[in-house]
Amino acid sequence: MKAAAFPPGLMMPHIRPGRILCWTLLFIGGVIMVTPLLFMLSTSLKDASQVYDLRVIPETPTLDNYIEILGDGRFTRWLMNSTIVAVIVTLSNVFFDSLVGYTLAKFRFRGRYIVFIAILSTLMIPTEMLVLPWYLMASQFGWIDSYWGIMFPGMMTAFGTFLMKQFFEGVPDDFLEAARIDGLNEFTIWWKIAMPLVTPALSALAIFTFLGNWTAFFWPLIVTTSAELYTLPVGLSSFAVEQSIQWEKIMTGASIATLPTLIIFLFLQRYIVRGVMLTGLKG
């Protein structure tokens, strides 16, 4: 196209090849990410006979699966279990990780560096290696098949502590010293002054902890034995074991289970993006 074809004063837009490549890659990435979600939603709207029909839009869409799943007392129980576990573990992480992170960042005491290194070193141990000691511990304390058994390994994390320590280090000491002069005790300084100043980090930690626990499968599967204590991912997997593979039920359950994640993403998108930017952590 000739430049003269554009209205006077306007230049022909210059499209760089790098930009085209970037957009193409993003589009392909988007398709790869969204396709499974679409199939999950599509399958949840099909009856058992249409499950292997790979059309995205079902021939005869039905909400029967949703009615059946939500009417099944087990599913709502698993939903509640996942909510209880994810909320308590998130609150615990926000509280304890930030408390320890603050202490390591703002107090000078003998052995501080060793404590920090010890906490950090636990990051290098893979979960698979920890499962056996966790299980033995849970077994000896009688925590198998209990909420506490599901939650205790994640109540405080080394990564959360490290993350919060890094953020608290950015809080100017002047704020804390001014509060000390104004008569606040150390706990109140942490709660009233330091915590509100690290809200972006707290949001990121809370969001990622919640999502991590909401989707956790491996440890809840090991530590729970009765169906009443299953979390949602474990419960959904039982559809594949107990009654052959009921894909339409699994996908319906998964669609419902994805809802909180989507809602969180929609409303807290800003914090998630900021969290990823600030921490280099992905959900």
Partner: peptide
């Protein structure tokens, strides 16, 4: 004595006023 028990007030270089 702790700072709070000295009955002094301090003004800092970076103001130290709480942004929240």
């Amino acid at each position: 004595l702790q700072p709070k028990d000295r009955n002094i007030a301090m003004v800092f270089q970076n103001y130290a006023i709480y942004p929240h």
